[in-house]
Design a protein around this nucleic acid. Structure first.
Lengths: 249, 249
DNA sequence: CGATTCATTGAGCTCACTCAACCTTTGTGG
DNA sequence: CCACAAAGGTTGAGTGAGCTCAATGAATCG
């Protein structure tokens, strides 16, 4: 997933998005002059709808296009030979999908819509071309990729050092921050994924998530009722996650 | 860490390295004409030695330069507020360090030499500049970044779905493949890191690694004696890792 | 409104963790 | 070159966090 939290430059991007209602700006146009923006817009394929449960692309398929999420919510999953599924991330409005496929030109994960969603396709080679004319675009795209590296490592850090409560807390804080950045409430939001998906993402079992939910409630940190989330004590939550709160978990 | 296994294009890169003894070629010059290679060489700062135990850069420092490893072996680590250390990867000859810092222009991890090593500095903005003239260079650098994303996700998959034996087996197979690619034996090599580092990287404890070592020996899959590794049954090892053998764990 | 998928809670188990003792290798100064 | 200190590695015993299995309740959807 592409994360936007934390980097000042990316907050800027988001602001430009909010005013112009243009997803690709959010993702890529940092520092671009208006001429560049026009060209970037022309490079996008028409909007494409993806119904809940449908996949945008599947593991193993050839990379045809990157995608910028215009609205909706996705999960990305990797499947082992034996059919075990591992959720590798959740993506929301304004984030990019498919960058893992640049390496081999084949998708290493599948992207599945968790709600009815709308995406723009972004042609990678055209993007490269345009990046040559507008260095800021090129650099910004690289930042997005670097963000993914940083995020993955942070998740690894989490898996290596946190217990189940802390992982769930970190997960909620991450969502909270991303919602806040989009102008939504950071303390009251709706989960779009199943417990099982959360569990897979955090390297735990669904039952363990349920118990962690109960514990966060007992500690008066967060109330989860089904998919509704109410963060009761944001600072307390951050505190509970200890050394991770500053980082983009 | 930058990984080279698996992608056909990167194997090609490596071949050019073997003949020309030029690390940056290994990392970046895929598809570059000779003029480009010359310019790329000129962009590299002089070789820099890093003694065993010393750090090449530290978490939090400003990004000054990316590095291509000319010889030696590194680990990258992230440290939490409380001082817990998590190993995020191991890098060897011909791999790149520092790409996680492109996002925020600050290093999110520290790189520590596990043996006396030599690196080249590669200036990022100059690299960008040159990338504009040589699209293949640009694209190749992106592939390296995408590789890191894919690798991180694969490690996540491992953490989420494998037990201790399988993780150690996957780890050994990964090293094996990377050594093979460099012309070294894939079944007999030396570990440059402590058990504790392996444990941290795999999300386990040092004692658990020791017991996993014993079990792999009992299964006649691999003999580890101290830091010497002898893979007894490469196919068996791959089999043991099941669905992961095809992937670049 | 019945079926199916998703979520919660309990009971018992297991794999990896902790703590601890001991062994082996590496490095250093006399 | 040896001796000894320090760091790293191995093995055992007991514990515990998260897993499995199972039963039941809640939400979602034709």
């Amino acid at each position: 997933m592409t994360h936007i939290l934390g980097s000042a430059s990316e907050s800027q991007m988001f602001r430009s998005y909010v005013t112009n209602d243009n997803v690709v700006e959010l993702c890529l146009t940092l520092g671009l002059c208006s001429e560049g923006i026009t060209q970037l817009n022309s490079l996008m394929t028409p909007r494409k709808g993806v119904k809940k449960g449908e996949s945008l692309f599947n593991q193993g398929e050839r990379l045809e296009s990157l995608y910028a999420i215009r609205s909706g919510f996705f999960k990305t999953t990797m499947t082992t030979k034996e059919g075990k599924e591992q959720v590798s991330g959740f993506q929301m409005m304004g984030e990019m999908l498919g960058m893992d496929a640049i390496s081999t030109e084949h998708h290493t994960s599948s992207a599945i819509a968790l709600v009815d969603s709308v995406v723009y396709g972004v042609d990678f080679s055209q993007l490269q071309q345009l990046g040559r004319e507008f260095p800021a675009l090129q650099r910004n795209f690289m930042k997005l990729m670097s963000d993914e590296i940083v995020h993955s490592r942070t998740v690894l850090l989490m898996m290596g050092t946190m217990n189940s409560d802390e992982r769930l807390a970190a997960f909620l804080l991450n969502l909270s921050g991303r919602f806040a950045l989009r102008g939504y409430s950071p303390i009251s939001f709706i989960l779009r994924m199943r417990r099982e998906d959360i569990a897979s993402y955090l390297g735990l079992r669904m039952e363990t998530i349920c118990r962690a939910v109960t514990r966060l409630r007992e500690m008066s940190l967060a109330n989860l009722s089904g998919r509704d989330v109410e963060i009761v004590n944001l600072l307390g939550l951050k505190d509970h996650v200890a050394g991770f709160s500053r980082q983009r978990v």
